[in-house]
Design a binder for these strands. Sequence first.
DNA 1: AGTCACTTAATAGTAATACAAATAGCTTGA
DNA 2: TCAAGCTATTTGTATTACTATTAAGTGACT
Lengths: 237, 237
Amino acid sequence: MHNAFEEIAGGKRSLHVQVAREIARKILSGEVAENEIIPGEMILCGQFKVSRTSLREAIKLLTSKGLLESKPKVGTRVTSRENWNFLDSQLLDWLTGIGDNNAVYRDFLSLRNALEPEAAALAAENATAEQRILLSATFQQMDYISKNFDLERWTEADMEFHRLIFLSTGNSFYLPLANVLCTMFKSFIAHSSIKGSTCIGEHRAIYSAIMAGDANKARQANVELLSKSKRRLPSTD
Amino acid sequence: MHNAFEEIAGGKRSLHVQVAREIARKILSGEVAENEIIPGEMILCGQFKVSRTSLREAIKLLTSKGLLESKPKVGTRVTSRENWNFLDSQLLDWLTGIGDNNAVYRDFLSLRNALEPEAAALAAENATAEQRILLSATFQQMDYISKNFDLERWTEADMEFHRLIFLSTGNSFYLPLANVLCTMFKSFIAHSSIKGSTCIGEHRAIYSAIMAGDANKARQANVELLSKSKRRLPSTD
DNA sequence: AGTCACTTAATAGTAATACAAATAGCTTGA
DNA sequence: TCAAGCTATTTGTATTACTATTAAGTGACT
C-alpha cells in the first residue's frame, strides 16, 4: 500500500506526515491556489494511495497550521496566505527548496533584526543560573572552534548559542523562535552560499554582556553582530 | 468580517478540538507536568467518552503544536516547554484564564515592543496599494469613533488597524503575528482592566507615516504609541 | 411573483473494529 | 557476560458504517 511514497518523501516518518508534506508543498509552491477547494477525501485517498484515516490526519495537521479549512457540504479549502503560520518549524521545514529561498532568508533576517537584540537584552536580565552555565559552556566551545576551525562544528555551536539566548529570555513568546531559528539554520542557511566568518569577537561581546546582566550592552552587541552578517548576505540574484 | 477566527473562538467546535482543548489546558496549567507520560489512548477514550479516532485527532493536533510527542511502546509524552508553540493563535486561545494572564500580557507587550515598530517601518516601505486603501479606511473609522466614542467599536477598529500593519509588511514571518495580536486582543486585553484612551494622535502619526512611505517616522511613531500603552499597564505590584 | 419552510444530497465528523509496525524489556542461549 | 531473539504493549494504518452539518434545490403559502 505505502509503496510509492517512501521513495518520494524519503522520510520514515508516519504516513500522514508524509501526505501532509506533499499537500503542504503544493500549497506553499502555489500549485494549488489560495482559497481553492481541494478534491474530496475519497479522491485524495486514491491519489495518495492511503486510507481515509491517514488522509484525514494529514488534513488535520495542515488545518492546525492554518493552511486548510474544512466545512461540511463545501469541502476543504486552502485558506488565504495571511493565515499560514510561518512561525512553525515544521511548516518552515516543508518550505525548503520551494519558492525563493533567498526571499525567505531575507524575511527571516529582518525578523531576527527586530527580535534578537531584544532577546539578548531579556536574556541578560532573566537568564537562570542553569541557562548561564549552558551559555557559558557553549561559548567556550565556540571560542575553541574558532581557533581550530571546523565549519560544521562552528555552525552547530553558533546555532546553539543563539538558540540558548531565545530560551533564556524568560518570555514564552520568544521560546518558539528558538526552534524557528534552528530550522532556518539547518534548512536554509546550510544550503545557501553563506559561509560566514566566525565573528567570535561579536559573540564574545554578547556573551559577556549577558553574563554581566547588562541588557543594553547585550542588545547593542547583538545589533552589531547582525549588521555584520547583513554584509554577508547573498546578493539577491 | 474576516478570517477563520470567529469560528475558533466560538463554542461549537468539533469533538476532537474540544478534547484537545481539555488536554491542552491540563498541560498549560501544569496539571500534567512536562516530560510526563500521559495515559494510553484507551484510557483517555474512557475518560473523555469519545472514540479512539477523535482522541487520536486531538493528540495529533497537540503534537502539531509541539505539546505532545508519541512513540510506539512508550506512549505519549508531554514535551518540554521550549517546544510549545506559543506563537499559535489557537494555543494562545487555550491559554485564556489559566495561569497568570498578566504575565502572558506582559510577555506579549515585550514582543510587541520589539516587533511592531519594525512592522510599521516595513509596512511603510512595502504596503501594496490595496493594503493602503484598507488601512486608510480603517483609520478613518478610528478617527470617527474617537469622536463619538464607543469602546467596543474602538477596540475592534484598533485591532484591525494593527492587524493590517502586520499584514502589510510583505514579510511572511510577520503574517502569523497578525492573528496572534488579534487573539491577544480578544482573549486577554478584553478581559483585563485596561480600558485605554483612544490614542488617536499616535495612531494618526503612524498612519500618516505609513501612507507617506516614511519608514523611520512610522517606526518612531509606533514606539511612542507603545510607550504610552505601557503606562496603562495593570500594575501587578 | 416572492419568500419562507422543508427536503435532499453531498461532505466532513464520529465510531468501532481489525490488523500492522515498532520497540522497551525480558528470555534465552552461546 | 553479552548478544541475539522473543514477547507484550503501545501507537500507526486500514476499513466500514453511521451521524451531523449545511448548500442548494423544491414546493407550498402568502
